[in-house]
Amino acid sequence: MGQKCCTDRKDAGSSGGGSKDKQPDLSSRKSVAGGGYDNKKRAISIGYHSKGDDSEKFDKAFETNDLKAFVELLASQQAIESFDERMHPWAEDPKTVGALAGTQLAILASAAEQAEGNKQIKDDIRKAGAIPPLVDFLKSDQNDRVQTAVVALSFLTADCRDNVVAAYEAGALELMLKLVDSKVAGERAAAATTLRNICMEDDVYRKKFVELGGIQALVNQLDTTPDPSLNHADVQLEAVLNLQDMVETEDGQTIEEYAKLAVKAGAIPKLQELEKSEDKEVVTSAQEVLEALQAYA
């Protein structure tokens, strides 16, 4: 299953004819809030300062691109003193070598989204055993570990069924759902789209998400406050598309049960407000979802 990503939808444009005209698409959906790494620069070096055996192990793994070594380092609590520059627009810089190893995995996964990227790397990261410990990061009381995992999993679950299955079986759905009310806008948006990636792979996953109150969580994201680290129109568009994907089948048919839940959660007035946006794609997408939901108001 899968619909167009935020960028694909903006590039393709829309006729405004409603969701019934929407064509299924096999392209990936990655969070607009999940990006931010300068992959060309990170491919050369990561400027950080730390003393100890684990930093030496990280440097060696970095030189050889040793995925298994990065995974083994995820458990490291060796402190990082500082970075030469900020690594991500909204996620905290890693404070330990373990979080840094997770960040490197996220960078590698994000590079796979680019035209020249190694598409196999996402599978390789899973095979190296990264997904369960990254999901465990979501349980941490260390914000840098949580945010590293959110960013990494947003890339790893995009258009990669085996990774989605591994993340779901590790408990990512329940843990990610707790983060969609985060005070950090990027974390909220990336968590929501990771959840969308998971739910679109299996109706069982989507049903579980809905049972846990996921529709309300997605509706809540339709009217979030702008954040200077993110393009607000892109965040709004992604929030609308996430809700649309959740209440429609792959061929654009509205799922009555989920549509009614969205209406009950207050989606209609929020979508009507989004119709006032200055961004054409936000307006068009909001109108499509509104048209689908109004039959159940």
Score class of each variant (00 low, 15 high):
I121F: 06
Q104T: 15
R42D: 10
S285A: 13
L74N: 07
A267D: 05
L241S: 01
D227P: 05
D159Q: 14
K260S: 02
T254G: 06
D234W: 14
F58S: 00
I198V: 15
T224V: 12
A109L: 00
L271C: 09
F137A: 10
K95D: 13
D54P: 02
D144K: 01
M200C: 00
K119C: 14
F70V: 09
S140Q: 11
Y205Q: 00
A128E: 03
A112D: 08
K4S: 03
D181I: 06
A111C: 05
K10P: 03
D38S: 08
Q272T: 14
E187N: 09
K68T: 13
A286P: 11
Q244S: 00
V184A: 10
V151N: 01
L134W: 08
N163Y: 04
T103Q: 15
E211F: 08
K139Q: 07
F70E: 06
E81C: 05
G13H: 12
V180T: 15
S277W: 03
R9F: 05
V150E: 13
G17T: 02
H49L: 08
P94D: 07
T284L: 15
E92K: 09
L156N: 10
D59M: 02
E72W: 04
L290W: 08
A128Y: 04
E92F: 07
A106E: 11
K41T: 01
S76E: 06
D223P: 09
